[in-house]
Design a protein around this nucleic acid. Sequence first.
DNA 1: AGGATATTTCCTGTTT
DNA 2: CAAACAGGAAATATCC
Length: 273
Amino acid sequence: MSITPSATLESPLTSTWGPTNPYHDGPLVMSGYASGLWPHDSQPQFWSKYQVWEWLQQVMDIHQIDASSLPFQNFDMDGHQLCSLNYHDFIRAAGSVGHILYNSITELKSGGQYHLDIGQLELKHENLCPFPDVSYPPGEIYDPSVQSLAPNISPTPSSPEIKRSFSRGHQVKKHNPRGTHLWEFIRDILLNPERNPGLIKWEDRTEGVFRFLKSEAVAQLWGKKKNNSSMTYEKLSRAMRYYYKREILERVDGRRLVYKFGRNARGWREAEK
DNA sequence: AGGATATTTCCTGTTT
DNA sequence: CAAACAGGAAATATCC
C-alpha cells in the first residue's frame, strides 16, 4: 500500500474554509465538518475522499492536535484506499499521529461491522490496543495541552488546506458558532471510541443513551474547542438542558450524567433505524 | 447594523 | 455535605 504521494494535491477541496480564522496558530484550528452531515452512518470503506478528510479533521479535534501539523495531502484517497492502509502506512503518512489514526480507523472498520471483504477486519478488540498510546491519565483531568503526540511534524508552513467548502451536493447550511454544536461535539466523541480516554460512554447504543464518565474533562475539552478555558460541566449541562426543548436530547431522569439523543439529533445511529 | 441562534454565565431552589 | 438537575434571565458570540 503506497501512500499515494497525492498526484492531485490540490483537489477541489482546497477552497478556503474561513478567511476569518482569527486564531492563526491558535490552539485550535477549528473543525471543518459540516454540522449534522458527518457520514458516520456509512462504513469507512465507502467514504469519499472528502469524508476521509473530515474524519482526519475530527480525529485531530478530539485529540486536540493541531490539524495543521497533519499532512492531509498524504491522505488524498477515498475510504476504500484508506482502509487498505496498514499501521506502517499510517506512520509513514502521518508520523506520530499515525497510530491514533490507525486505531481510529481500525475501530471504525471493526465496529462498523459487516461485509466488504476488503481484506481487513483483523483485530477488533478495542481493549487490546496493539500499540501503546499516549494514554491519558486514567482518573485525571485530561490535559489537552498534552499534545505529546506529534507536537511537531514540521508545521507545514504551506497552510494545509484542511478546509472545506466542497460545493458538491449539499452542506454548508446553518451557522454554528465555530464549527460544531455542543451536541455534535458530544456525538463525535461518542463515535470515536478509539482513543476516547473514557470521557463519555454509551449506555445503550441503539437507544442513543450515553453517560458522562468524566464530566469536567469533557467540559474542558469543549471549552478548549470554543477557546473558553473557563468552561465547566455546570455550564455545559445548562446548554445540554436547552436541548430538551428542541428535542435534540431526551430527558433521562434518575440517572445522573445520563442523556439520550432525541429525534432531532442526527448521525449517531449505528446503521439507521 | 440588526436580528436570530446557540450557547455562556449566574443564580436560586430541589434532588440524589 | 458534595454533585447534579432545573430553569429563568441576561449577557455573549457568530452568523448572515
